[in-house]
Design a protein around this nucleic acid. Structure first.
Length: 564
DNA sequence: AGTCAATGAGGCC
DNA sequence: TGGCCTCCCTTGAC
């Protein structure tokens, strides 16, 4: 093992080009052999062993690993940048990403195939895994059927998809956007928080009226909620460990709680606040930190009530809190300990959760359905969106698991599937997608609309000018508007297309909407793997996002790389 | 066009 | 438990 770790720190002796040119023509004459001392040779063999596939890691074939060679082979052959093996290349070929075949599928995480051939990617249902349902009717099921389900609309409405990019506040923030919230009473005001702690206010009916408050928080604004008793005031929770109550007209802010009064003394003591929600009926602000604790604040007195309660594994981050919209006693929490828990606010004690919803990985978000509060929707970093159809029924298994690409957790704001608050059937959810698709030679990351009752992908919304990933999405509570945060920009989408069955030519943005039979109703998407694009097109390069006559560059497009 | 870094979870010891 | 290493379809600044 000592040799192993020693070899890890050495530079790799197998040389290879990591560029993305797709040359497989490298021939034997490109290799040369050098004699090295036996110690180094041993190291190289150990190094190869270390790269064998082990669960999430790559592997080498038995022959390659076991076969000792005389001396060191310095190969100039192109090697895969992921598994370091020859014979294939991982990375972008044009706007299509080619997976390393030695790794499990990047989408569903199962071995034996790549994203390109993943059944969950090809499936029209967008990869539903039917969960095992035990047929055990409890008295609670009966109550649910009688009292709650009757409120849920039986006729599923036609979903309205805000598919056309209407307005963009280009580089509104100086760091990536981490949270969005619509004003609780004024329909044209959008609040946005960023990684630096700044809070933006944008009246998108007058697109030039933008305000940024830069001194409310010192780092990531993780959550924002309006004070439902005073719609000029906003609660914000930040990784600086404070809850602030801010007048959005003046920017004057009052600190309700500071978990780091003594300043920075290292990461072991620095407390960060993530999940937050308000409960009007109980006059509470609920917030949770990165050590597993929940804090209750009296929203009138602006003071903390009682001691913090450990609600998740000690030392683990609680990333989300949600109060049930129809039953004020119920609270949902989720966190890095791979669990979402449902609690009775009247009996909050460590370990007293009503229900434990287990996940394979970190749970980015957990939400009750917006109207009846009877369903639960969670997003986990195992690339699955889970739906529980009734909080009164059997919660031991999710009703459905929907495979969806959203597992990237580093350098990006975590993805969260959010309900459409306007959908009376409580079915439609929106979530940004991590992996890209090839649209006319440009790699774009769509925003997906998913029917959570079937797992069907209803629409994937893109704009050719938007090349960055869009992890933050918020649907308006009343209007058919979607707000998105993508990198440093904030975007407003509205319904722009009429899908009457004719193949309409959209000017700039493209949307793929799926019919009830699963067929694409309107599509401009190029099938992946065709690799027809030669990369010489200028479309998509140095993209401009246009806003009210003004424009600004977005990030560089992932575009066709040059072929050798 | 290339390089660098911010940054966080998971696995291993 | 804590330290270290690895993951390696980002984004933007230099």
């Amino acid at each position: 093992m000592a040799a192993l770790s020693r070899s890890r720190r050495r530079p790799k002796l197998i040389l290879g080009s990591n560029n993305e040119s797709s040359s497989s023509s490298s021939s034997e004459d490109e290799e040369e052999e050098l004699e090295e001392d036996p110690i180094v040779e041993q190291d190289v063999i150990e190094d190869k062993r270390d790269d064998r596939w082990n669960g999430k890691r790559g592997f080498l074939s038995e022959e390659k690993v076991g076969k000792k060679t005389s001396g060191i082979t310095i190969s100039l052959k192109k090697v895969c940048k992921v598994c370091k093996e020859e014979g294939h290349q991982a990375g972008f070929q044009g706007a299509t990403y080619i997976d390393c075949p030695k790794k499990p599928c990047f989408l569903c995480k199962m071995p034996g195939h790549t994203t390109m051939s993943c059944p969950h990617r090809v499936a029209l249902e967008h990869g539903v895994i039917p969960a095992t349902r035990k047929n055990k009717q409890t008295p609670l099921d009966y109550v649910f059927e009688r009292q709650v389900k009757s409120q849920v609309s039986k006729i599923k409405p036609t979903f309205v998809i805000p598919d056309k990019l209407d307005l963009v506040a280009v580089k509104f923030h100086s760091r990536r956007v981490t949270s969005l919230e619509f004003h609780s009473t004024r329909s044209n005001i959008l609040l946005s928080g960023d990684k630096k702690g700044q809070i933006g206010i944008w009246d998108y009916s007058k697109p030039d009226e933008k305000t940024i408050y830069g001194s409310i928080h010192s780092c990531i604004v993780n959550n924002m909620k309006f004070d439902l008793r005073n719609d000029a005031m906003l609660y914000t929770a930040s990784s600086d460990g404070t809850i602030n109550h801010t007048d959005i007209e003046t920017g004057i802010s009052c600190c309700l709680m500071d978990l780091n009064p003594n300043g920075w003394n290292g990461p072991a003591t620095w407390r960060m606040l993530y999940g937050m929600d308000t409960c009007l009926e109980k006059g509470l602000v609920l917030v949770a930190d990165n050590f597993g604790y929940l804090y209750l604040l009296d929203s009138r007195e602006k003071t903390q009530i009682a001691d913090a309660i450990l609600i998740h594994k000690k030392g683990s981050k609680v990333v989300g809190l949600h109060c049930n919209p129809s039953q004020p006693d119920l609270l949902l929490s989720c966190g890095n300990d791979h669990f979402a828990y449902m609690w009775d606010i009247r009996q909050l004690e460590s370990g007293s959760s009503l229900v434990n919803l287990a996940h394979e990985r970190v749970v980015n978000s957990a939400y009750f359905s917006p109207q009846t509060g009877s369903k639960i929707l969670t997003t986990s970093q195992d690339n699955r969106i889970r739906v529980w159809d009734s909080i009164f029924g059997d919660l031991s298994q999710p009703s459905r698991e929907i495979v969806h690409s959203h597992d990237f957790n580093r350098h990006l704001t975590p993805f969260r599937a959010e309900w459409d608050p306007k959908d009376p059937s409580e079915s439609l959810a929106v979530i940004g997608r991590y992996i890209s698709e090839n649209y006319d030679g440009v790699a774009l990351h769509p925003i997906d609309f998913i029917d959570t009752t079937t797992g069907r992908l209803v629409a994937e919304v893109i704009d050719t000018d938007l090349t960055t990933i869009t992890p933050v999405n918020k649907l308006h509570p009343c209007d058919d508007i979607l707000a998105s945060g993508s990198s440093r920009s904030v975007l407003i989408w509205r319904p722009g297309s009429k899908f009457d069955g004719e193949d309409q030519q959209l000017e700039r943005n493209k949307v793929v909407i799926y019919c009830n039979d699963g067929k694409k109703k309107h599509s401009k998407k190029i099938d992946d793997g065709s690799d027809e694009d030669d990369g010489c097109s200028s479309k998509g390069k140095n993209l401009q996002l246009k806003c009210n006559g003004k424009s600004g560059k977005t990030g560089s497009a992932k575009y066709k790389k040059t072929k050798s």
